[in-house]
Design a protein around this nucleic acid. Sequence first.
DNA 1: AGAGGGAAATGGTCGGACCATTTGGTCCGC
DNA 2: GCGGACCAAATGGTCCGACCATTTCCCTCT
Lengths: 254, 254
Amino acid sequence: MITSEPLFFPAKAGRASEDVALQIEAAIMAGRLAPEERLPSEREMQQQFGTGRGAIREALRALKQKGLLDIRKGVKGGAYACKVGMVSIGESLALFLKQHDVAPSALIEFRESVDQTLVVLAIARGSAEAKQALVSMAEEFEACLRQDDHDVDRIGHLDRDLNLALAGMAANPIFEWIMQALQRGFSSHDYTLYDTPVYRERTAANWAETARAIAENDPLRARSLIGYHYAILRSCLSERAAASSSPRVSPDDS
Amino acid sequence: MITSEPLFFPAKAGRASEDVALQIEAAIMAGRLAPEERLPSEREMQQQFGTGRGAIREALRALKQKGLLDIRKGVKGGAYACKVGMVSIGESLALFLKQHDVAPSALIEFRESVDQTLVVLAIARGSAEAKQALVSMAEEFEACLRQDDHDVDRIGHLDRDLNLALAGMAANPIFEWIMQALQRGFSSHDYTLYDTPVYRERTAANWAETARAIAENDPLRARSLIGYHYAILRSCLSERAAASSSPRVSPDDS
DNA sequence: AGAGGGAAATGGTCGGACCATTTGGTCCGC
DNA sequence: GCGGACCAAATGGTCCGACCATTTCCCTCT
């Protein structure tokens, strides 16, 4: 049997490209197309679907944007089915946050709520090695924040890794995903806050202590420290808001 | 001045369509294209970008999938910029959940965490009218669950509205969004659970009491009731899991 | 004045052609 | 015999021109 099933029906319903996209998506979701499996070439599908090549290409473009396909050029190229990663959701969230310009306080509120849960889950389910690794990362973060050389990129990266490591310890993909998504929507606002010396100092110490509390399986203390972390963040934020509403020294008056 | 700025540059960089998509997206995100504002027609953009119409169409298709555009036919049709709604994120999440078949317990865990925060925020920030409306909805839900006529659609709809109303009272768009997204990824698993009589009865009573606790500004009691809600859900779930692992009566053996 | 129809604008589709990239093999020279 | 350079095929990426379907608006006819 060369082809047990036609796999695709020659379908047209006004919006041919949408119909094609739906059929391919259905095939992927139903498992008829395994991840990393290659779809027929555009010119083959053009005949299978009984439609023009443009419609096929538009369908593929939509599915690629959706994160369901990976498209490569050249011979051995083509459309490959793939599992949708957390990146696509993160992008959607980032767009949403930017367009609706959600107040930073709303993000902080949500993140605090998540972190409060995350920390107890991490204590309950994280391995001893993971907890120790978290402590190491937090100490590295602390060292990085304390040195005068403000490597903003590295700080942001470490902060991100720290949060993701914590989320990973919870052993719940939803939390991991939401953290990934929030990092993408958050970074644009946030990392300039590390410029404030007092915030930098306190945050460094707080992260390290939080990690230690987790390693020592002290959930209440860890939660308390998380609360303090966000208290710092909030005060720093309101300070900045006050500063920008009555600016004595403009940052750039050319 | 007919066109103060060209708005789009004739750009080609190997992947012309991606370049086009990036430029349009940038224009939207920068506010150069207000929501509900109409983009030039495909044939006009074809000239502005100095590219073929196919590339334009593929770019538009991708942006539409991303939720940034709304495309209509006919004269006065064309591509209209629009704010990305919570639906697109919800779709991404639903895909993710389906493909990675996340355990229902993970979803329950996350939702419980969110609800615990939601309930105190709703008490703190919800208006008296909103709280009363929540009580009314919960009582309607209760009545609906108690009558023998199992209108599954209506039950699902009421459950969804109840959760969304609660999320809306928190006055934090992030919570509202996450609830919307979860509803989409959740419904497929969940609503069959209302078939179990004992779960239906307890849930009805619990929701009503939770709403009353919120209306009476009793956060601790409300949290406690939320916890009970998920305790019920968990026991019901484990019961079903046990039943399906040793099925005495198969649901459909044709 | 009202209703109907047709013109125009626009997205949706098709077919063919050509270009760019990647792969793999093949051929030539050493 | 081996290695590197070159070429052919497969495939996505793009362009062009044409036509169809849908929607809106206006014009004409009654």
